[in-house]
Design a protein around this nucleic acid. Structure first.
Length: 279
DNA sequence: CGCTCCACCTGAACGC
DNA sequence: TGCGTTCAGGTGGAGC
């Protein structure tokens, strides 16, 4: 069992967990305890959010978008260690790394915490969302129906770098991080060091299929953990989920049962793979 | 433009 | 016990 870091499925799980507490509610109060996140929380954030009704929550890649009646949108990114907790009724003391809290008219207290402060919370005009620097250059959403094998194939054509590197590149495909890149390449039987430009159309099609599968499975696992979690500590997004290859260095490959899972470092990140099953 | 490397930040795990 | 080191990884900017 692992604690997932916030990649697309974890962020989607947070969004789903926030829905019942936020959608259609009015944010009655906002407290910012620390502004120096990855980017500073806007100076007038509290005034612009207080007494605003939440129209809806959406997600783009690993970013949560909270649209307000004022035609502004809150953007939340969890970085690596960001977390959101929902408390109902009697509010308890925030811990050391709870930086922002929102109180709703339904008496929910929603806390954003982030020990490493790689995450951020920002506020922009609703019409400017797609122009926001972090979002503007993002590649396609992997779960979109029109993201198919040929789309990925075309984006990889002529690339000299590795499959690991291109799948980590948010401009080529949005939402994957180190864990799900490892899992997808393992399931597709593609070597992480393979040159991206040498991928066949058939391999691209297979890869897109397993990417959708692995993300959807993780979102489903998150959804089922949501119920359990909400009853206990209210923390969203960090659910238990086991992986087929990530973190399994030295263990037998779950596919061929004979080879041992290897670990190497690519772009400064751990890659786990089976040298027999992944070519 | 394509690609690689590294800083940012802190807590956990590990070695002695 | 305690201190120091290493590792974890999303993002964006520097450098070639």
């Amino acid at each position: 069992m692992e604690k997932n870091l916030p990649e697309l499925p974890e962020v989607e799980t947070v969004r789903l967990g926030l829905l019942p507490a936020l959608e259609g509610r009015t944010i009655k109060d906002v407290v910012v305890r620390r502004r120096d996140l990855r980017t500073p929380v806007p100076e007038n954030f509290e005034d612009r959010v207080r007494n605003q009704k939440v129209l809806g929550l959406s997600r783009r890649s690993k970013y949560i978008l909270i649209s307000l009646e004022s035609r502004e949108t809150i953007i939340v990114h969890l970085g690596m260690s960001g977390r959101i907790r929902i408390e109902e009724g009697n509010p308890c003391e925030p811990d050391k790394h709870d930086h922002i809290e929102f109180i709703t008219d339904s008496r929910h207290c929603i806390r954003f915490g982030d020990p490493r402060r790689f995450g951020f919370v920002d506020l922009i005009q609703a019409g400017q969302v797609d122009l926001y620097p972090s979002l503007a250059k993002l590649g396609p959403e992997p779960l979109d129906a029109d993201f198919v094998g040929d789309v990925l194939y075309d984006r990889l054509k002529g690339r000299q770098t590795t499959m690991k590197a291109v799948l980590m590149d948010q401009r080529i495909l949005a939402g994957l991080g180190n864990i799900y890149v490892n899992e997808a390449l393992f399931r597709a039987g593609i070597a992480p060091q393979k040159k991206a430009g040498s991928l066949s159309r058939a391999q691209a099609e297979k890869l897109v299929m397993v990417i959708k599968d692995v993300l959807q499975e993780a979102i489903s696992a998150g959804g089922s953990s949501l119920k359990d979690h909400r009853q206990t500590d209210g923390e969203l997004g960090y659910f238990q989920h086991s992986f087929q290859v990530y973190g399994r260095e030295g263990e037998a490959c779950l596919n061929c049962q004979s080879e041992i899972i290897q670990r190497m470092v690519q772009q400064g990140r751990s890659t786990f793979y089976c040298s027999s099953c992944q070519q």
